[in-house]
Design a protein around this nucleic acid. Structure first.
Length: 311
RNA sequence: CGCGGGGUGGAGCAGCCUGGUAGCUCGCAAGGCUCAUAACCUUGAGGUCAUGCGUUCAAAUCGCAUCCCCGCAA
């Protein structure tokens, strides 16, 4: 089938690679414009762009996908399918009507649960036991079109948003190919989403990474795993930002009734911090301007003491 | 030229402002104590102080340039 691929985030790369390997005809890869990014504002394209360029594909990077120029350009491609994966722009009905068969999207959740830009992160933050991939027919309202294919995956206790994304990325590519086969042979059904079961998963904000030590250790643990790789869970230590990458939950710690955020143990074995309920053993941290390091190493150099408060 | 922090034995840091003996905690090695130990005591090995140039009698420290790393902001 003649396909136009839309994608920008790293999540989209696996699907793009699968399409490149397949027998489908990729007529164009659409991705976000190159932007200045990073510490020194170097101009850089998306991962999708470099993958497409390496494969010798035509690319298109409009500022606005809904503009007249974009629409005209896309019409000329005469595609049968649009495959949209983490593209970053919202489509107009005019654009969605362009492909001859349909526009499809890979979404990293079990829709209608976790509609939005950060489904993987929110599934972990909300302590879900499972999530998955949905292949949907794209409708005007974001992530709300009927489902073509869906598959679930277990969220492991030690999964972070990063490891879970890797798993879902591969599963998404796999499921996409299956969905394309079904579409190609007209052997699919569209299942409307149950609007009563919708859960939203909006893009993460910086403050979603701020740790509230009065919460339970389990919740904070989920937050730490869920807000990676950005913004990362963080707290404040001596006026500097302290990022926490990894921690273990300890339900109890002997004879202690400390304030939330208080360090109750700090020796060369472990750093234990009190939460509103339960305790956390901090395993991997990074102080502003410093390197990422284990709890033990942090103690050795930073003179963190019992009684210090994180906030 | 967006703002800021950092690079010091194997690890994490102090020292820099106010130039003059390379410091701390940990790890490592050897020895001791101990029923024993991740505990304790002794001793020891291990460093181009990111790189280059400059200032100076003298530079980890002051100045200029370069490389690398990190936090913020987008």
């Amino acid at each position: 089938m003649k396909i136009v691929f839309f994608g920008s985030a790293h999540f989209a790369v696996a699907a793009l690679e699968a399409l490149i390997k397949s027998s489908h005809e990729l007529v164009c890869v659409v991705t976000q414009p190159d932007k200045k990014k990073g510490r020194h504002l170097h101009v850089a394209g998306t991962d999708v762009k470099s993958t497409a360029v390496a494969a010798g594909l035509k690319t298109f990077q409009p500022e606005d996908i809904k503009s007249k120029e974009s629409v005209n350009f896309l019409r000329k491609l005469e595609a049968e399918l649009f495959v949209i994966v983490a593209y970053g722009q919202v489509f107009s009905q005019e654009v969605l009507d362009i492909p001859k068969i349909m526009p499809v999207n890979i979404h990293a959740s079990l829709l209608p649960r976790y509609r939005g830009a950060a489904p993987i992160n929110w599934a972990i933050i909300n302590a879900e036991k499972k999530t998955g991939i949905s292949i949907i027919y794209v409708s005007l309202k974001v992530d709300s079109g009927p489902v073509i294919l869906q598959k679930e995956i277990k969220i492991e206790e030690n999964d972070s948003a990063i490891s879970l994304e890797e798993k879902l990325r591969d599963l998404g590519a796999e499921l996409l190919m299956e969905a394309l086969r079904m579409i190609g042979s007209r052997s699919y059904r569209l299942l409307e989403q149950d609007e009563d079961k919708v859960i939203l998963a909006p893009k993460l904000k910086k403050e979603d990474g701020l740790i509230d030590w009065s919460g339970s250790a389990a919740d904070i643990h989920n937050q730490i795993r869920g807000v990676l790789p950005w913004p990362g869970a963080f707290t404040c230590y001596r006026g500097k930002i302290l990022k926490i990458f990894q921690a273990d939950v300890l339900p109890i710690f002997p004879n202690h009734k400390p304030a939330a955020g208080e360090v109750v143990r700090a020796d060369k074995h472990e750093i234990i911090v009190a939460c509103g309920r339960g305790f956390l053993n901090l395993k991997e941290l990074q102080l502003e301007a410093g390197k990422r390091m284990s709890g033990q190493n942090f103690i050795i150099g930073h003179k963190l003491k019992v009684g210090d408060i994180l906030e």
